[in-house]
Amino acid sequence: MSALTRTPATYGAGSKGRVPSRGTASVIAFGAPLACIALIALLAPLLPLSNPNAQVLSEALRPPAWLEGGDWSSPLGTDQLGRDVLSRLVFGGQLTFVIAFTGMVAGAVPGILLGLLAGYRRGWVDAVISRLVEAQLALPFILVAIAIIAANGRSLPILVAVLALVGWAQYARVIRAETLSLRERPFVLGLRCAGVPTWRIMLGHLLPNLAGSATVLATLQMGTIVLAESALSFLGLGVVAPDISWGAMLAEGREQLTLAWWVALLPGLAITAVVLLVNLFGDALRSRFDPKKRSF
């Protein structure tokens, strides 16, 4: 089953041979807009937006302001229930970000710890964890998610748990591989020799040295999770009304596709833009953190 452990060598947009200063520049260039979007979404309640769930049926399916029949009171138009699309986008973004972040953390913590454990202890611990990772990666995610949600019902905690399942195996695999090589460095032997307890070597010494790859991985996982969440919500298995996420908005937009294309277009654009930024940001971080480029 070695094909599973063969990661496709990815290449960032010309990340080879990028000078460090440009690396930092692109980290900022992609990180800043991302931070802005996240900030706007998180501060949604403070912004002068109309209630995202307020239904005004007389205003239903109004196109965006710049189109014929549009009105600046709802700049991006309204949906089939007359709710303001802009407001729903911002509030939906809020839940999308919160879910993506908690899902990422919920997958990263066990994944990183298990990867560390497998790489450091090796032997049967490694054998067991590696088997689990391979098995997890062999399960098609969306089907597993469907099975879990079908059995447990829809709720935000279940959704986050399911999203954590997307990621943990990836973290475990990458961190294990890096730990395997890191543990052979003499400083680890030196610490054992000084009587530093195993858990302290793992958490206090190995973990900080893996922080770079873990950050890159976590960033890229955020993108994957946003996509996974939107897919589940689109199938009606994730976020459901009155909660709003971009995926849930798309599910509603699908019904009005022929009448009001903007209801389906805009949340999809938002997802694509955010995931693209996240991926670019992750690639920029990768070339920034690349251990080969660090000046030892």
Partner: peptide, 16 residues
């Protein structure tokens, strides 16, 4: 990169 960032079902909707 774009291909990896776009939600497939949305792309499908837009193609439709």
């Amino acid at each position: 990169l774009l291909g990896q960032s776009v939600p497939l079902f949305w792309l499908g909707l837009m193609l439709i």
